[in-house]
């Protein structure tokens, strides 16, 4: 194995009781690579993401991140290791402003001997937020505004901006534009392009064929809990992918699956 692999899963499997939600997924992601995960509802996309990010515990298999086998006890472990996830349900606190949300749970503080009553370093957090937003090209009219006063697109951008602010090693986005309008979707896609230019690896879970063909280098298709295709963007097209998603075709190396 070459050492430019960021994430690798071997035989990653998840059973919910008798339901085989994910079966023997062998997946690799290289440095700077953007990979899309596609598949029908219930194909195992989200299950796959949940095993990697520690939201759930896998039944079997290995996850190798940044060269080391990892066992994340929870999403926080994964985040500390450098995997930043933008979940379908945005994990934002509505009554707090942008820096508060970016730094929630890992605030910059002063006078740390005060324990839970240590002081927040608002100034440093604001500066880091502005830097992070500039880096991703996220535009938010006023970072002191609370999340409840923001549009869906802006909220999504705030969630994504965490990635840039904390220099994560891997970003995972679970349908980031599912609930957004045309312009807001364009804004999020621009951020993804910025991440690509910066060489930040990304896993994008999406249903949007145009978006996927526009943005990523490689497309992995799941069907009924199994990986059925691993396609380079240049070597495939929309119709081909749909054939894999619906089960009309199965990749040669995945014969025998599903």
């Amino acid at each position: 194995m070459s050492d430019d692999i960021v994430l690798e899963t071997r035989d990653l499997t998840k059973h919910y009781g008798g339901v085989h939600a994910l079966e023997g997924a062998n997946f690799t992601l290289r440095k700077g690579e953007h990979v899309a995960i596609m598949g029908d509802n219930g194909a195992g996309k989200s299950t796959f993401v949940r095993q990697i990010t520690g939201v759930e515990q896998r039944t079997r298999g290995e996850v190798i991140f940044d060269g080391k086998p990892v066992h994340f006890a929870g999403p926080l472990d994964a985040r500390e290791a450098g995997i930043e996830t933008v979940f379908q349900t945005l994990a934002l606190a509505d009554h707090l402003d942008v820096p508060d949300n970016l730094f929630l749970g890992r605030e910059k503080t002063k006078l740390n001997w005060l324990g839970p009553f240590r002081l927040l370093d608002y100034k440093a957090m604001r500066q880091d937020t502005i830097d992070g937003l500039n880096k991703t090209g996220v535009k938010i009219p006023n970072i002191r505004n609370t999340i409840q006063n923001m549009s869906g697109g802006q909220r999504q951008c705030v969630a994504i901006a965490r990635t840039a602010t904390f220099h994560s090693k891997l970003t995972i986005m679970d349908e980031p534009t599912a609930a957004l309008g045309v312009q807001e979707t364009a804004q999020v896609e621009n951020i993804i392009r910025t991440l690509k230019e910066d060489g930040e690896p990304l896993i994008l879970v999406s249903h949007n064929m145009r978006q996927v063909m526009d943005l990523v280098d490689r497309i992995v298709v799941f069907r009924r809990g199994r990986m059925v295709a691993d396609l380079k963007k240049e070597e495939t097209d929309g119709q081909d992918i749909v054939a894999y998603i619906t089960g009309a075709k199965t990749g040669a190396e995945f014969e025998g699956a599903a």
Binding site: L90, A93, L120
Partner: peptide, 22 residues
């Protein structure tokens, strides 16, 4: 001005988000 206060607001605002944030 303290972490205690910020987390108190965060939990009331969105408990799930607070948990996800660690």
């Amino acid at each position: 001005y303290t972490v205690y206060g910020k987390h108190t607001y965060a939990i009331g605002s969105n408990e799930e988000a607070a948990r996800m944030s660690g």
